[in-house]
Amino acid sequence: MEIIKPLIQYLAVIILSPLLLGLINRVKAKFAGRRGQPLLQLYFDLYKLSYKTPVYSRTTTWLFRAGPVIGLSAILCALAALPFAGRPGFLAFDGDFIFLIYLLGLGRFFTVLAALDTGSSFEGMGASREVQFAVFSEPAFFLALAALSKATGKLSLSGMFLALEPASWQAAAPALLLLTAALFIILLAENSRVPVDDPNTHLELTMIHEVMVLDHSGPDLAYILYGAALKLWFFGALIASAVLPRHSGSWLYDGAAFLGMMAVIAAAIGTVESVMARLRMIKVQYLLMGALVFSILALLFQTGR
């Protein structure tokens, strides 16, 4: 039974991820007083897209077709190393989070190249913004993890979250709170949510992630949408693991609490999207630098202790 638990966890992640976006949309609809789309809308979309015939621009080459495949592979591989409800994934080793961050980089690199492959200036703009924001969010992410590593004394993601106990929150609440805030900002930026990007915008000029995938269609677009859902889960799970330090030891109970926390995070994202507008493009880097400052402050609190 112990052997197949990671497998069940992994299956749960890859099956439940698209639900998060449904939840976010429901929360936004509630705020707007609408009924909103079905909870399972993304599943329907994915099914429909998988069996559509794609259209490829004559400008594109193999990179355009490889982009979605590699992007989705990178995030699927990253999820294998992600702890679930305080339990390690398949791949847990010292320094695994370094690998995870660079895997996200791999996905970004090929998504950006696929966008540039179309020769469209809209997609070039999106690609340019994508690599720009990573310059600020990646150091913030690294330093947030450094604060976590310093708080727990561990070098692997699973080890850190396993070593995180209610006592660590009592001892280092400000640091942990700051790094959770940093992680939440990074989540919003990496997943192109408001206030960094608006997934529902209708103007190509102002988009970031959506504009990079304008030309993709059919199964390729399905891969991209699914990859985005998995990426949202990835960042959400980091936050959920950070704020749920208590582990009862019962797999089912912990798992249920973890999934409940994921739903709460989805609701939080939906709330943020409903109550605030997106930032002007040139202000986004200041938001991300805010995350960087939160991470540095968390480290300072840890070092000063």
Partner: peptide, 30 residues
């Protein structure tokens, strides 16, 4: 593992296409 996942997903994409010939067109120019 990453290489294996890439291979599986590439095969899966081929399966989704099911031998249909993708259409060719210009890049979306708004």
């Amino acid at each position: 593992a990453l290489a294996a996942i890439v291979w599986v997903l590439a095969e899966k994409r081929r399966f989704f296409l099911g031998g249909r010939q993708p259409a060719a067109g210009p890049t979306w120019d708004c």
